[in-house]
Design a protein around this nucleic acid. Structure first.
Lengths: 347, 347
DNA sequence: CTTATTTATGCAAACGTTTTCAGATGATTA
DNA sequence: TAATCATCTGAAAACGTTTGCATAAATAAG
C-alpha cells in the first residue's frame, strides 16, 4: 500500500555541471538563443534528454513573467457547443506551445469571480471567458486588463465597452433566419422560448425573432414569448401553458436545442404532430437534433470556427511582446447557418 | 486598437511595507500559521484585500514545491462520459483548493506523451489520466511516479502492475448484464460490436459478453463479433456486413452508444424493426439513447461517481504530506447498472 | 598587425514566495 | 527576581530559471 518518494530533480545546473558549462549557457541553448555555438547547443540538448530534464515552468515563469498558459472560464464543459469550442482551443493552443487551464463556473457568478481570482494567481498569459448568463458586472476581469493580459470574451459577452476582445456569433441573424424559415413554411402563430434578457445572446435573438415577425406583419402573442432559463423543465412548462388554453401556436422558435427537444417530446406525448400541426426550430445544432424523430431544424454556430478564431486572436495579441495592443476594438463575428430538418418540413 | 500595459504588481512586500512588517510575517498571516497575532493577521488580510493582492502561485510553488494544480489527460472532452467526469472532478477539486489543467490527447499516443511532458513541466501535484485505446507503454508517466506525484488512471487503465491508482468501472459486469438481458428478451443470435482489444475496457466487456453467451449455451458467430474503433462509420459497416448476407442477428450488444445509435439508424433505413426483429443494447447511457426512437437500453457508468472517487483519492494521497503512500494497491471499482429502454422490449 | 566587430560564454542579480534560525516580547513558574 | 516557556516577529537563504552586463574568443576591417 505504500511506496517511497524519490526526490531528485534534474535542473539546468545538473546539465551545466555535466558539461562543464554555466547554467546561463544551458538556458540559452534550450531557448534557442542565437548566440550559442551549434555544437554546444547539440551537446546541451543531448544531455538534457539523457538526464530527462524538463524545464520547471514555475521558475521560468517567475523569472520571465510568462507562463505559456492560458485560462478558460466557461459555464459548463458538457454543453455540446462549449465542448467543441474547448477541443479546438486546446488543440490549436497546443500547436503554439501554450497550455490551457479550463474552469467551469457552473453558471454561478460567484464561482466565476473565484475562478478569475485563481487564474490570476496562476498568472495566466491571457484569459478566455464565456460568462454566466447573470454576469452583468465584469470587474473581476479588471485585474487582467490592468496587468496587460489579453481578455477574450466569447458567446456571452459584456454589452458595455470593455478593454477586451469580443468573439460572437451572429445571434440576430440566426434568430431571424429560423423565424423567417418558420414563416416561409406557413406558420402564422409563432411562439418563442427565449433565454433571460440579461445576456446579449438572447437580446439579439429576441430582436431577430421580432424583426422577422414584423417584416411579415405577423402578430406576436406576448403569452407565447418566454424569457427563462433554457432547461428541459422550463420548456415543458411553457408548452403546457401554451397548449392547455385554446389553440396553441403552429410554430415554435426555441433559443436552444434542449428546449426544442423538450417541446418535441411534449408534442409527441400530447399527440400534436410535428411538423404537421406544429413546426419547431432550435439553436446550436446539437447532435441530438439530428437523432430525434422528427429531426429538428436548428441554427449551426460553427463552434470549431469560434475556437480557431479565439486562438488566432490570443496568439496574435500575445506575440505583440512588449508594447502592442492588448485587445481588438472590433468584435470578431462568426457566421451562422440554418440547418433545415424534418421538424419544419411542409409535407 | 491599442492600449498601454500597466505593470504594477502587488506583492507580499507591498503589504509588508504598508504595515511596517516583514514579508515573512505577511506570508505567515496569509497561510494561517499559528504563531501570528490575531490583530496582525486581520491587518494583513485587510490590507491584502485593499491592495488587491493575489498570491503569485509560481513563486509560492517554486519555493514550496506544491502547485495546488492537478493535471488531467483525456482522449476527448466532448464524449458524454468524459464531460461528466471532468465536471465533477473540477468542481470537487475546487472545493479542496486545487486547480485543474485539462488536456486532450485526441486519442493519439504521441500527443499523450507530449501532454504528460508538459504537465510535468508545470509540476502538477498529481496526474489523472484516461489513456488512449492504443496506449500500451506507460513509461511517459514514470517521471511522476519517481518524483512522488500520485498518478490516477481511470476508464482505460494499464493492465500490468504500475505504481499508480486505478479507478475502473465494472466492464465485465456491464457487458454481462446487457448480454444476459438480450438473451432474456429472447435473442438467440447475438452480435457484438466491440472496441479494440488493446484496451482493458473492451477485453473485459468481451469477456462479459462471452460469459453470458456461454452460460446460456448460445453459439457465438465469429462473423458477428467486430473489434474496431467505435465510430459511427465502422458500426454502419458492421451492420451492412451482417445484414446483407443471409439472416442477420436478432440481438446486438454494442460497446458504446454511438455504435448502438448507428445500428438503430441503419435498421430504420433498411426497414428492420427494432425491437421486434432486432434488439439493441449500448454502453454509457449517453443522453442520446433516451431521445432516439426507439430509446436504447444502455449501461450506466455513473460518471459523476467516478469523478468523485477520483478526487477523494487524489486528495487523500496528497494529504499524506511527507512520507505517505503515493498510490493505492487495490483498484477502486465503480458499479454499473443496466438501464432498460424500448430497444430491447419484448412487446 | 592592430583595431573594431561579431560571436560565444560566464557572473550575478533578479523574480515573489516560504521557511529555518535566531531573537524579542510577554507570561508563567520556581 | 531570575529562569523557563510559549508566543510572536524579522533576517536571510533558498527554489530554478532568465537576462543585463562584462569578458573572452574568433573573425573582419583598416
Amino acid at each position: 500500500m505504500a511506496v517511497g518518494k524519490k526526490n531528485y530533480q534534474n535542473t539546468i545546473l545538473d546539465i551545466a555541471e555535466a558539461l562543464k558549462l554555466s547554467p546561463a549557457t544551458i538556458s540559452r541553448a534550450l531557448n534557442n538563443h542565437p548566440y550559442v555555438k551549434e555544437k554546444t547547443r547539440n551537446d546541451v540538448v543531448e544531455m538534457a534528454a539523457k538526464l530527462g530534464y524538463r524545464r520547471n515552468l514555475m521558475a521560468s515563469g517567475l523569472r520571465s513573467n510568462r507562463t505559456h498558459t492560458i485560462g478558460l472560464i466557461i459555464p459548463r464543459v458538457s454543453m455540446f457547443f462549449h465542448a467543441e469550442v474547448i477541443t479546438t482551443i486546446q488543440n490549436d493552443l497546443h500547436k503554439h506551445g501554450y497550455s490551457l487551464i479550463i474552469c467551469q463556473s457552473n453558471d454561478s457568478v460567484s464561482m466565476e469571480r473565484e475562478l478569475a481570482e485563481t487564474l490570476y494567481s496562476s498568472r495566466v498569459d491571457a484569459l478566455i471567458a464565456a460568462c454566466t448568463l447573470q454576469t452583468v458586472d465584469f470587474s473581476h476581469f479588471d485585474k487582467f486588463v490592468e496587468h496587460g493580459n489579453p481578455v477574450i470574451f466569447y458567446d456571452r459577452v459584456p454589452v458595455e465597452d470593455y478593454k477586451a476582445t469580443l468573439i460572437k456569433g451572429d445571434d440576430f441573424k440566426g434568430a431571424y433566419l429560423a423565424t423567417s424559415h418558420l414563416i416561409a413554411a406557413g406558420c402564422k402563430r409563432i411562439a418563442h422560448i427565449s433565454g433571460p434578457l440579461t445576456s446579449n445572446l438572447y437580446q439579439d435573438r429576441a430582436a431577430g425573432f421580432l424583426k422577422a415577425m414584423e417584416e411579415h406583419q405577423l402578430p406576436v402573442n406576448p403569452d407565447w414569448v418566454f424569457h427563462q432559463e433554457l432547461t428541459q423543465g422550463n420548456a415543458l412548462f411553457a408548452m403546457q401553458k401554451m397548449f392547455t388554453t385554446g389553440a396553441g401556436p403552429d410554430g415554435l422558435f426555441a433559443d436552444n436545442d434542449t428546449s426544442a427537444i423538450a417541446a418535441i417530446e411534449y408534442a409527441k406525448e400530447k399527440g400534436i404532430i410535428v411538423p404537421d400541426a406544429l413546426k419547431v426550430a432550435g439553436y446550436s445544432n446539437d447532435p441530438r437534433t439530428a437523432i430525434i424523430t422528427p429531426a429538428i431544424t436548428s441554427v449551426e454556430q460553427f463552434p470549431s470556427l469560434v475556437g480557431r478564431r479565439i486562438v488566432e486572436t490570443v496568439v496574435e495579441l500575445l506575440s505583440n511582446d512588449a508594447e502592442g495592443p492588448t485587445y481588438k476594438i472590433e468584435p470578431v463575428m462568426i457566421p451562422v447557418e440554418l440547418i433545415v430538418r424534418k421538424s419544419t418540413s411542409t409535407n
